[in-house]
Amino acid sequence: MYEFARGPLVWVALAGFIAGSLYQLITMLRLAKGEKNILPYMSARYGARSVLRWVVPFSTHNMRIRPLFTVVSFSFHLCLLVTPLFVMGHAVLWQQSWGVSWWSLPSSVADLMTVVVIFGGIFFLLRRATAPEVRNVTTWKDYALLLLVISPFVTGFVAHQQWLPYEATLLLHIVCGALWLIAIPFTRLAHMLYFVFTRSFMGSEFGAVRNARDW
């Protein structure tokens, strides 16, 4: 079971993630080409200007007026992206499967980053449930998606700490991780793929067309 999970299942998930992402991006590009009012107005300079603004903490007005959210959101996203790539347990797997050695995070740092993701997820859950403007547009799917996002981190952390039977938790961790990867291109997690494009389109509209700033 474990062998299946860390073998074929992971392959399927990775393939699904890559193929799904390519499919979505190619579809987007194909549709955008078909419309005459998108690509001709894209500007590399102003697109990049906008993207840079929006990936640097506290550089936009909306980030400054809600400092707690900004800190939580940036640390959540950073840890979410970095931890799975550089956690020691995964580095061992990269090595075993492909023979590539990879720099890995010290165990205590990885633990901390995992906790940041879990607490960030809990923060978002609570915000969804309590902030009226967010609750108003939230359905069960949004909660489910958030739980899915933190599930590999919760299970990975529990497995690493060996609080529960190791093999079973690890198995659960792999399954959650696989679902997580496949979900990216096909759910709202696709904002990870689209962010650069939506942001640079608006950045181009504001900067290149309308001579204004979009932050």
Partner: peptide
Amino acid sequence: QSARLKVYLQTCVRCGLCSEGCHTY
């Protein structure tokens, strides 16, 4: 067939951060 419609619909994570931008709200 609208690229913007497709991408915007899927990208919006329902975070509500746009609220502060609206004078009506």
